[in-house]
Write a protein that binds this DNA or RNA. Structure first.
Lengths: 205, 205
DNA sequence: AGTTTTTGATTGACAACGTAAAATATACGA
DNA sequence: TCGTATATTTTACGTTGTCAATCAAAAACT
């Protein structure tokens, strides 16, 4: 019949090459340099070749985001696997790692959270890696509940912890913070605040 | 000599018309619909006319962002002017108003914080309105310090408060929160956490 | 072996984008 | 009325994402 159809592995390999090129271009020269033709040059093929492996540019970008989430999830999972004195210090370590990752790779963090346009499907690889990235923090908070360090709903408190680090990182990366130096102190405080909020507190008004 | 040059007021009026049209287009059909030619149609003139009043599309977009910040600043200042029982309840009210604004006008909030590309100048109308929007929160925290509700650096704590509400709102608007309902509870908790963090606490580890 | 058929990759083209340059319209001082 | 400085439009160029048509290659059947 036909020329031997591409294996699933071959397809996945090519998808990975394209995602690699796109990730590289984005990290190197920013979003507006992420072009179909630029990707094609990087790959060494025609601009239309990518269309056989992706639905279009948005799909490629979604793949880039999923990869960024995957690397972030790897990072968080590694911290979660490491030994910690107790649940609270584990949570603090996860928060530190979260911030460190975002500041070490601001482009990755931006592509994960900032350039999110509505209309992307909630399922697929992106959702899966996003869940992976979120799980360590959630489990750490649940552990704090199990050890009696936390009174309320773990889901609520985990979201609160996430919002604190995410908010500070986002404001920092977009240049909104008014304090030039002393940012380190600010991050210390947000970590301390993470731990403080998981102590039993009076019910909110 | 020449045909009478445009007055400063006329120029400002035209700039406002363009900003109006751009704001409207963005809120109505999203970012990708914000086009030079679409603005021109909305205004009723040629696509190149806007270039006499703005440096280009980025400049127009910056003006849209400045306007969004201005409306947000108006909102915050109104809350700050109102009467409150004490400094802590004033801070809580500002936090509530922050969240309410962001959820009521997600497009405005997004244009303020999400689509921020590096390279925009830090001065001008945008920076001015951004400062206006930030000041009420900062002053409220400073008042908490003055009333002995807060031990540390007001600048640090104000940034922390900002990060908390901004982080939660941003995660919510980008669809990252895992809790379908119960979001109201989450926002209640972040407000409570705002107040809790301005109580004297032990020095961070 | 030669032809057909199926699949992958390329080329060409199109509409839309931002915007530089050239051309045109407009209104006042002479 | 005419000249000139200013406001606006027209034209055009390079780039973008992507559809349609074309090309290339390789396995299967005659």
């Amino acid at each position: 019949m036909p020329r031997s159809a591409l294996t699933t592995e071959e397809i996945e390999a090519f998808r990975e090459r394209i995602t690699d090129a796109a990730t590289h271009l984005f990290a190197e020269q920013g979003f507006e340099a992420l072009t179909m033709r630029a990707i094609a040059i990087e790959i060494g093929c025609s601009p239309m070749t990518a269309y056989r492996y992706f639905d279009g540019k948005d799909d490629i970008f979604t793949s880039v985001r999923a990869r960024a989430f995957a690397r972030f999830a790897d990072n968080q999972e590694a911290i979660a696997r490491a030994k910690h004195a107790d649940a609270r210090s584990k949570l603090a370590a996860l928060g530190r790692a979260y911030i460190d990752f975002a500041l070490a790779e601001p482009d990755s963090y931006r592509v994960m959270f900032e350039l999110t346009q509505p209309g992307v499907s909630a399922d697929g690889e992106l959702a899966e890696q996003g869940l992976r990235a979120w799980t360590p923090l959630y489990e750490a908070v649940r552990a704090c509940v199990a050890e009696g360090e936390l009174a309320g709903d773990p889901l609520v408190h985990a979201h609160l912890c996430w919002a604190k680090v995410h908010g500070l990182v986002t404001l920092h990366l977009s240049g909104k913070l008014q304090m030039g130096a002393g940012i380190g102190e600010l991050y210390d405080c947000v970590i301390a605040d993470l731990l403080q909020s998981v102590r039993p507190v009076a019910a909110p008004a």
